[in-house]
């Protein structure tokens, strides 16, 4: 969820990925995986027609362990991954992060807070934020001069 590494099974893909990342950074694509390095949950967000979408990877998290709220123009997501430490168990590797994580995102447009919905499937949390009426794209009819 938080830290991810590439598997160099296909060296060519690795190279392509590195090149893409380099170029993306250079050409200033929003975000460059910095959040993942800082230990905050990484977020992808996109804009489609009348809604904004935010997606997070939250493997092993149930809906009770999630707390999502929208206040003014800020979306805050809090999630908790409980420590599953058991007695009589030896850990050989512990890479999966545990604990509570919070992320607050400033939204670029006004959203209709009452209509925000969230969906959890196979460890992926998808939040749909319908844009407020004023922020929706509007088709302007061109009147014909008479």
């Amino acid at each position: 969820m938080v830290f991810r590494y590439l598997t160099p099974r296909y060296p060519v893909d690795q190279l392509r990925h590195d090149m893409n990342r380099l170029l993306n950074g250079f050409f200033a694509t929003p975000g460059n995986e910095s959040a993942a390095r800082e230990g905050r949950p990484a977020v992808n967000g996109w804009d489609r027609d009348e809604s904004l979408f935010v997606e997070l990877e939250v493997p092993g998290v149930t809906s009770e362990q999630l707390d999502i709220s929208v206040v003014d123009n800020e979306l805050s997501i809090r999630l908790e991954r409980p420590d599953v430490q058991q007695d009589g168990v030896t850990y050989h590797r512990r890479e999966r992060p545990v604990g509570a994580f919070t992320r607050v995102l400033r939204l670029p447009v006004d959203v209709d807070a009452d209509q925000v919905s969230a969906n959890l499937r196979d460890g992926i949390l998808t939040i749909e934020l319908p844009k407020a009426e004023s922020a929706r794209p509007r088709k302007i009819e061109v009147a014909k001069a008479t």
Binding site: R9, D13, Q14, R16, Y91, H92
Partner: peptide, 15 residues
Amino acid sequence: CGCEYRPNVDILEKV
């Protein structure tokens, strides 16, 4: 195309 990621794992040993 597309890249492959190495999943995070916990490995634990029980009796």
